[in-house]
Design a protein around this nucleic acid. Structure first.
Lengths: 213, 213
DNA sequence: GTCTATATAATGATAGAC
DNA sequence: GTCTATCATTATATAGAC
């Protein structure tokens, strides 16, 4: 029994280093800009050894994606059915969502890059599954809030959910650029940003009494 | 006098084809995934001819970016100082912004890809200039709305502007993915989407009387 | 499982004829 | 301005020893 586990562990040490190196490079530069030589160099091994563990560059990429997807999926389970008002639950979900994004930038960039790029058929399937999962939870949460008369009934729950996801993911994508823009800077603190977003989403930017058409 | 103009026109016919082919490929696949051979093939010319017009692949890329940036910058000038309430002007700007994005998907994808990717130093400068320009206008518009007491004074104008841009750009990025997600679909019509977004941004999702903290 | 050495194809870029 | 032919380099991937 133990021999099998030992083999698995010994075997993974090599694979693990390769997977980690590949994740870093793929996330930062994208599939095409990364060579097997660069991965081998960063993983401190040789090119043929990578081909011993993975059939092709694309296979390695898919393996990296699957590991990242598994990690990403498990992270938001805690927010599935929490107590409190839906306003609070939605705020918590959004804060947790953004926190996960910023705590796992590599994973996020990897999945986001693949999901939004016209890349490899099957890679997008994995990425779609991940974003679809957290998105569906958000939509359901908004709908429940509508059923409880806490949220307006005349808004599209998918739209509200999308705006939350968009605000968080686009913040992650754009913050390196935004930091260098003159004149108007966003809050660099994630919590401040998230609270500001949710305040606008919940209450709107119009002053009270201006008439909600 | 005319000879110069004629030369210019004759000269551009070749360059134009190369630039257009390069824009299509760079926008769809990114810098690294596009080869000079592929560009030459699509432009119906030869590789050395490209090198006659541009010093390197990177030079060609910058030229494509500059053309795209010029196009993109000119598009939103009309919304600079329009009449009407700031709510209306903001809605019009957002609608025009999204319309421009969807009418020039190639240009948008090209600039967005470069701005958000860890790509070539100088390419990002161009992209940053474009997004920074339209972003600054939006922020100013929100601030004016606050000065006129039309918008709440306690919101961050940069944050509100960012949410509009994020909603539009992320919609553009994600709509190919979102269309295939089960359960919750966004409106496929740009106007419907934009109106829904602005409704939420202006009025919020909470039902009236729930107390704006 | 890991390596050296290598096959094969494609890359960015150039030389030089027309 | 445009081409054919070619350079040097690098890419993915494999063969085969240990």
């Amino acid at each position: 029994m133990q021999t099998k586990t030992d083999n698995k562990n010994r075997q993974q040490s090599g694979e693990q280093a390769i997977l980690e190196a590949a994740e870093i490079l793929f996330a930062n530069k994208g599939f095409d800009a990364v060579s097997m030589s660069a991965i081998a160099r960063l993983a401190d091994t040789s090119k043929p050894n990578i081909y011993h563990h993975f059939n092709s560059k694309h296979d390695l990429y898919l393996a990296v994606m699957q590991v990242a997807a598994r990690r990403s999926s498990a992270l938001l389970d805690a927010f599935a059915d929490a107590p409190g008002t839906f306003k609070q639950r939605l705020s918590d979900f959004s804060a947790g969502h953004l926190e996960n994004i910023l705590d796992h930038k590599l994973t996020t960039q990897l999945i986001l890059r693949d999901a939004l790029s016209g890349g490899s058929e099957r890679g997008r399937e994995i990425a779609k599954h991940v974003v679809g999962e957290s998105f569906a939870r958000l939509v359901a949460m908004v709908q429940q809030g509508q059923n409880d008369k806490e949220f307006r009934a005349d808004i599209d729950p998918a739209l509200a959910a999308f705006m939350i996801v968009a605000a968080n993911l686009f913040f992650f994508q754009a913050s390196p650029v935004m930091q260098h823009l003159p004149g108007a800077r966003l809050p660099d603190d994630a919590n401040t940003y998230c609270n500001g977003v949710m305040d606008i989403l919940f209450n709107g930017v119009l002053r009270d009494g201006d008439g909600k058409s």
